[in-house]
Nucleic acid binder design. Structure first.
Lengths: 129, 129, 129, 129
DNA sequence: GTGGTCTAGACCACT
DNA sequence: GTGGTCTAGACCACA
């Protein structure tokens, strides 16, 4: 279920966080669903439990999971209310930076637009300027 | 010309790399243009020369600048030939991941499309400001 | 295991790189095998850890080893896929240049052919010792 | 006549040496032929005269050229007598190292043998073991 | 003047 | 424990 790439430069705990986020956002993991305990996941991935613990703590502080001591950890429902502007701006900045670099590397524009299309970001729903 | 944030978690030498890349990609720094010497930039930013050198060395190995020992460092012309597919795919994956997260965070689609528009990525010519 | 010549003009970190490459290419060090930590090797060779780290970092960027922060460094499996044409051409050019010079210096052709034979490069199967 | 690559990591004076050697070994420059003065070559290549001077000094000490003060520098006749064993061994070692790396990089053996063939190192003239 | 190498030693993040 | 970053300062080769 999880694929950890040790050769990758990214810290393992970040890889765990990222993959949880993707599974949550893709709807594979649904709200209130129980996730493996720190110890179980650590054993499964043959990774130090401390590393998993750190990932869970971070996921909790970012609001993606919550932990009930004695019962385990569970997926949170997406917060509909307050939008995390700061995080959104960070992400937008990252996107901007990557797109610029893609253009500089002569990546065909079509490929870039394809990513946008994949995500059904098309301008329907009355979004045009 | 450069803004280094010492408190930021990102290593200083990476900040230098990133800012150089942006200046190069934006066309502010042009091919064959001389950039400050390691010592000069270090003095200017009140940073240890070794740190700047590390940044320059990395920029060189990534093909953004070239260095002539005894003369200084210069902006490279973008490589026309071999396109770095691996790097492109990595960047595309990052963009994909960020866009997904933006959608999950309920970022208005208009904002996302605006980023694309800023970069004049649309294939048609209707690049209204 | 390593022989560093401090008097030699070649930088220490390059000597380390070269010797690692030879051990890897000779099959003495096998993929996934752990290599000494930066600190250990530094202590063993009575060399500053920074110098070893520089060597390791270069070996990693050349794809010979990979590093897991907090765990150590390991031998990479040789990349099967994309062949590094540029590097191959550089090496071929170096060989060409050296061979020309050997001929000019009146090195007996037999000695040169012996090098080729040592490496069992002949396309036929007559690899007599 | 000379092509200096500033982007290349190799010191300029070494590039000059190398190119002179190649021209001499290829017979383009013949014994007793006069070569440009330090100042002329420096102007022609838009390079610091000190750099050319260093190259000439080195070429002279390696026996490829000789200098008559007041007259200029000239190509030496190849020394038929004493063979520079040390240099030969160095070159052979370099060849060996490069060939090993080529094999490791999966360079087709045919390409390697082609280099040998180009130089007419074939086993005629009674060189076989 | 330039960059390149190296040392000694500090501090931090990750496992 | 591991590697990664950074500083301060020395020395050398190159132009």
């Amino acid at each position: 279920m999880f694929q950890i790439d040790l050769k990758c430069r990214k810290p393992i705990y970040e890889q765990v966080i990222e993959q949880y986020k993707e599974l949550i956002m893709a709807g594979v993991l649904k709200p209130e669903e129980k996730i493996p305990s720190v110890r179980d996941l650590a054993k499964q991935l043959t990774i130090n439990p401390n590393t998993i613990q750190k990932a869970y703590r971070e996921l909790e502080s970012q609001g993606y999971i919550y932990t009930v001591s004695g019962l385990g950890s569970f997926i949170s429902a997406p917060s509909q209310g307050a939008i995390d502007r700061q995080k959104i701006e960070e992400l937008k900045e990252t996107v901007r930076r990557c797109l610029k670099e893609l253009l500089y590397l002569n990546c065909p524009r079509k490929e870039i637009m394809d990513i946008v299309r994949e995500l059904q970001l098309s301008e329907k729903e009355g979004d045009q300027k």
